[in-house]
Design a binder for these strands. Sequence first.
DNA 1: CTGGATCCAATTTGATACTG
DNA 2: CAGTATCAAATTGGATCCAG
Lengths: 128, 128
Amino acid sequence: MSQRNTGVTREEFVEEACPIVEVLDHVAGKWAIGIIVAAARGPVRFTELERTVNGISRRMLTLTLRKLERDGLLHRTVYPTVPPKVEYSLTDIARELHESLSSLVDWAERHRGTIAAARRSYDGAAAS
Amino acid sequence: MSQRNTGVTREEFVEEACPIVEVLDHVAGKWAIGIIVAAARGPVRFTELERTVNGISRRMLTLTLRKLERDGLLHRTVYPTVPPKVEYSLTDIARELHESLSSLVDWAERHRGTIAAARRSYDGAAAS
DNA sequence: CTGGATCCAATTTGATACTG
DNA sequence: CAGTATCAAATTGGATCCAG
């Protein structure tokens, strides 16, 4: 568990992880995960997302959608009907991402209680 | 792949994931991941983190450190020496988190190029 | 229905200076 | 060394109106 057991320095190790943070930031936006989770079940329409993703505003939905589309995580299909119909679906790499996300989601579910307790304990100690 | 194959609606499915987003948001902060990765290799000091975690400011380092400590992800050890020495180390659940994070990190590494290409393509199409 | 554009409020962050 | 305090700047988010 000590950093002295390997030939790679902590700096190199983190350096390696940094561009990832950049990529991850796109996914880590407040709404991106919700949208990916919602779209993971099948093509989904704009209004459907607006109702599904908790408290998102139309503006944020549009922005996040564009960001995910730009990064190649969402595929956008426009049906030239009237009124217009647009469906969003996950690309292959987004589907992969969704699987990786599951691991994180599991962790969050497993420790949600522990984390809440830690917070109460921390806040309680501060109030003493 | 269709949502019609299960008995759970998309709404229920997302509903289920939402409290997680709340938990995840703490981890998803711009700096939290970098700090967790840095601390995963062993106890690390404040100044060490300041140098290690790319472009973090002292203020953000302090705030993120406190947040992670409050959530029970970091353990803070103060050595009452002069000058003072403080070491941060991962708690058990944070070590678990770090493993889950690895899956995400792997994804980001695998598709970094693809994502960059998708962005260029998207931006290029817009400029046409 | 699907969004783009704009204005404004709230939040976040960085720079800097100071302290035990 | 390890922070805290403060102020200004930047970012983000919501509300609203308009349009194909």
